[in-house]
Design a protein around this nucleic acid. Sequence first.
DNA 1: CCGCCTATCGGCCACCTGGCCGATGCGCCC
DNA 2: GGGCGCATCGGCCAGGTGGCCGATAGGCGG
Lengths: 206, 206
Amino acid sequence: MSQPIRLLIVDDHQIVRMGLRALLQLEADLEVVAEAGDSEAALRAFHQHRPDVTLLDLRMPGGGLETLKQIRQHSPEARTLLLTTSEKEEDVHACLRAGARGYAFKSMPPNALANAIRVIHGGGLWIPAEVARIDSNRKATPELSPRELEVLRLLVKGLTNPEIGELLAISRSTTKVHVAHILEKLGVADRTEAASEAFRRGLLPD
Amino acid sequence: MSQPIRLLIVDDHQIVRMGLRALLQLEADLEVVAEAGDSEAALRAFHQHRPDVTLLDLRMPGGGLETLKQIRQHSPEARTLLLTTSEKEEDVHACLRAGARGYAFKSMPPNALANAIRVIHGGGLWIPAEVARIDSNRKATPELSPRELEVLRLLVKGLTNPEIGELLAISRSTTKVHVAHILEKLGVADRTEAASEAFRRGLLPD
DNA sequence: CCGCCTATCGGCCACCTGGCCGATGCGCCC
DNA sequence: GGGCGCATCGGCCAGGTGGCCGATAGGCGG
């Protein structure tokens, strides 16, 4: 290993940044060349330092996913490892679609993290079994249309079909059609379960 | 400051533990005497080292809240600072009721964390404004009874009242009463909104 | 050009919902 | 002992739900 793998750490929690830096310093072939605590700083640091691998927190101000997309927009070859705590289905898919090379959990043992970084640096993908499982599930569950998402947002607030119809300036009949599609696509039986699924999958921006 | 404040760090993420250790080492009057990654290790470390202040992650295997309760059971004078990322209403209240001296977010600036530790070590409480706000809200929203929680768990799965009644071996009438109480206590209008509130407040063990 | 998706609307109907009326019994605490 | 919370059960009823039948219209891609 002549040249160390140069890393960029992006996480809004300074605690996590320092922890990652401390952990990764233990590996001789890894070098943290920059840190960033928000989306803008991440983009600046990326273009300035051109890291081999970027560690990106999913949940941060400015949006980890948006940051990923912006990085990939200018540098499609960028190798990015998502770091996160929870695994909401929507997040996983959105990230993989956006071109993340790996999806890791903060709870993983440190040496596994180092291995993930090496795999990604070598051009590979690092997808844990849980994520792969989610990913295969996903193909069976189609995406909601924009209109259906609008209805879903009102539905989880406890609004009835007539109320939703009034707010969206459509009839109760149309609302019913949207709700029926939502139930079908989420694979659930009623609106209450749909609300639960929406939260579980992270379909809503809270 | 003759004697440094002796700290115990409890968090299942090694990344966070190392980050906290790195951050707190910068403060001359703070000393990390032990770490633990799960509930059992936390109890052992607490009784062995008798830290002045314990930093406790809320979300960890074994349950941060349960760990707190067990520590306080044997050492009611223990000074504990909860560390967490999200603020679900139920968590906040349960922790404060269980005797936590402070409730801090991992996103807070590092020096604020050190200050929080010093305040708690001095016998004070460290409650951020957001948490205090949640805490005052809480008094208006009473707790759910055990039976109501059972019903709520089935309700969010999309089960109807007759179905819930059958599973719990009670009549539809009784189920309706429980649901009505749930709606009233959560301050919502229907079961769909109740499901949303349950997720928002973290009432369910996922 | 025709199929498919999306969005819009209507009616019918069995079922579920939630509010309101009533009731009983149990345990706990002052 | 009497009140209070909890849990249990029943009936009545206006309204919401979700499945099923139909229909029209625009857009997009093979």
